[in-house]
Each structure stands twice: as structure tokens, then as C-alpha cells.
Amino acid sequence: APHATGLGFSEVACDSPDAEQAALTAVDYLNQHLQRGFKHTLNQVDKVKVWPRRPFGEVYELELDTLETTCHVLDPTPLANCSVRQLVDHAVEGDCDFHVLKQDGQFTVMHAQCHSNPDSAEDVQKVCPTCALLASFNDSRVVNTVNAALNAFNERNNGTYFKMVEISRAQNTPPPVSTFVEFVVAATDCTVQGAADPTKCNLLAEKQYGFCKASLVRRLEDEELSVTCKVFQKQPQPASVDAAGPAPAVDQAAPPAPPANPPASLL
């Protein structure tokens, strides 16, 4: 039974089935509304308060800790199949406050606010003194690696010209000096041969994104570039996109269906 406080709300165990269901609904909501970066997964329910709601239902006020996964938010892979980014990779963690309404057995997010930060350099170096830390996206080595990787991908991909959408993460390692990047590309209305001026190439109305990982290893006078991209199925443009933040509510009973076909991979 809820633990009455006399303060208007009740306290329930953070690991109670209802708190867990509310937290999972909240994390689904978070991932559906993230517009860049990687999907997050629930690590811990920090606090739960349950407020009665008139005329019906109750509101779960949750504080959640989340961890970054290796799946980009545009990747249709279900969250359950996404690996958690490990501390040695300099992962990002999230702190979130949610209000989730429970009514008629259904959970609906009413309010969401999250902050995310990379783990501290000290924490990473405590477990791995030689591991690479995250690099700034405007670092010249990062920008060079991303541009070289995108060019290489387009040269091998003899058809549609893919444009840069977002640099998602980047790391520079000590000698042999290497740069590792992860970035998002999208198909345009240009062909590779016809993309003399990429600024004139427009994204397709039916968006087709790809997620790429690349590395540039530098040895004396030699550079070795490697790039792998996974191109996802085309995504119909939603009727309205709330660029300012999360919509006020989402019907968790009807999550968007994943694509019927697995994502195509291009090397």
C-alpha cells in the first residue's frame, strides 16, 4: 500500500511494479522526443512520490538516473537491444524529473525535464588512465576525420549523395594519434556525381538517415581511414515536429511501430 506521508503525497518503493512501469514509460517518452545523440536507458529510480489527481488517477513524480546507450536516437533498434555505453568510453549520464499520470491502468507522461552530462574525466581515468576522453565537435582533427569519412562513404556509395546531419561523439587518442568519430548522415536529392555544391542538395521529404562510425589513425607520414555506415529505412515526415521540446503527453499504449525490414548496412 502507498506509504502515506500526511503531506498530500504518498511514498512508494522505487522498485515497486508501478514505479518501475512509470519509469519505463518515462524513458520511452524521453527516447521518442530526443532529437539528437543517443538513446538513454534507465539506470536507477532515485525518488518517487505519488500524488492523488482529481477527479481520477494518480501522478507519479519521479527522479530518474539514465545512461547513454550505443544506439543513436534515429536508429530503429529497440532499446532493449541497445548496449549501455561503458564508463571507459566516456559515457553520458542523464538526470530526469518526470510527472507520469496513471489512469485506468495506463501511464502517460505529463511533464519531462532532463539534463545530461558526460561522466567526469576523473571518473573515467580512475577506471582507465589511458582511455580517450570525449573531444569537442569543433576540434580540427574531429572535423577533418568526419569530412574525410563522409567523402569516403559517398565515393564508395555510388548513387545518392549523403549529407552530414550531426556529429554525435568524438574522441582523440594519444600516439599512435587516432581520432574516432560517430556521426549521422542523411540522403539528399543529389547524386554523388551531381553534388558539386553540396549546399544545394536537400534532404529527401521522406528522410533516410544513416549512422556512421569512423576512425583516422595517423602514423608518421601515413593515415589510415576506416568508415562504416548503417543506413536506416526511410522515415515518413511526422505531421508536426515540436522543435522546442517534448509534447505535453504521449499515448504509451500506441508506440510507433518499428520498420518492418531490418536496417540496411553500407560499408
Binding site: 536507458t41 539506470n43 529510480v45 532515485d46 518517487v48
Partner: peptide
């Protein structure tokens, strides 16, 4: 914050309600 520990006269150790379990690793 004042929290009632349970029904008056209830015996036994207090149950820790929160935070919940760590699912992956502690930050």
C-alpha cells in the same frame, strides 16, 4: 522531510523505499 515509518505499533525493521536498484553500474 517527515515520513511516517508505518502503522502505529508496527514492529520490524524499517523498509528502505528509495533509491531503487542500480540496473547497470553506479556512476
Amino acid at each position: 522531510k517527515v515520513v511516517q515509518s508505518g502503522p502505529a505499533g508496527a514492529a520490524g525493521p524499517a523498509v528502505r523505499l528509495c533509491p531503487g536498484r542500480v540496473r547497470h553500474f553506479r556512476i
